[in-house]
């Protein structure tokens, strides 16, 4: 979400501190509270930093070679790419590929409708494939 491990760690610590404060006040946060809080803090932190250049998005159909292309990536590269995406696409992709939540839970956490979530994820796939094609060219047929 932030594309920066140090910022992410700071967000994590702050969120954890607030969760502890809530628990101490007999207000146990619900299951998704932590993720909602962390999301807003990430968005806040990234809004204060240097903003990525807004480029015209390139789209490409998901390739059959995508798994091999993705295998060549470092996790940091994916994190940086996702952190540069506009929200709510950024949050949707982060929560979707975290593979911890159902689509209903993601919709609830991000307050999105099904169509909006589907668009964010599907569009993200095609954009990432376009970037992937440029960064890690598919092996020749």
């Amino acid at each position: 979400m932030t594309g920066d491990a140090a910022k992410a760690q700071e967000v994590f610590q702050d969120t954890l501190r607030e969760a502890a404060f809530h628990s101490a006040n007999q207000e146990p946060p619900d299951r998704y509270w932590f993720f909602r809080q962390a999301r807003w803090r990430c968005l806040d932190v990234t809004a204060q930093g240097v903003q990525p250049e807004v480029l015209e998005s390139n789209l490409a159909d998901v390739s059959e070679h995508a798994p091999e292309q993705i295998a060549h990536l470092d996790p940091e590269q994916l994190a940086i790419w996702i952190s540069a995406a506009p929200d709510p696409q950024r949050s949707a992709l982060a929560l979707f590929y975290l593979d911890e939540f159902s689509y209903r839970e993601i919709m609830s956490m991000l307050e999105l409708k099904l169509g909006e979530l589907a668009h964010a994820v599907a569009f993200g796939r095609r954009e990432f494939q376009a970037w992937l094609n440029a960064a890690v060219p598919a092996p020749a047929q």
Binding site: A5, Q9, F12, V62, S63, E64, A66, P67, I70, A71, L73, P75, E76, L78, A79, Y97, L98, D99, R125, F128, Q129
Partner: peptide, 23 residues
């Protein structure tokens, strides 16, 4: 099927993200 393979590769990459010792 391509979408599923793409998503599985992405999730695998996300899971391989190193977690700092402090966290």
């Amino acid at each position: 099927s391509r979408q599923q393979a793409f998503d599985q590769a992405m999730a695998k990459l996300v899971k391989s993200t190193p977690v700092p010792a402090e966290i």
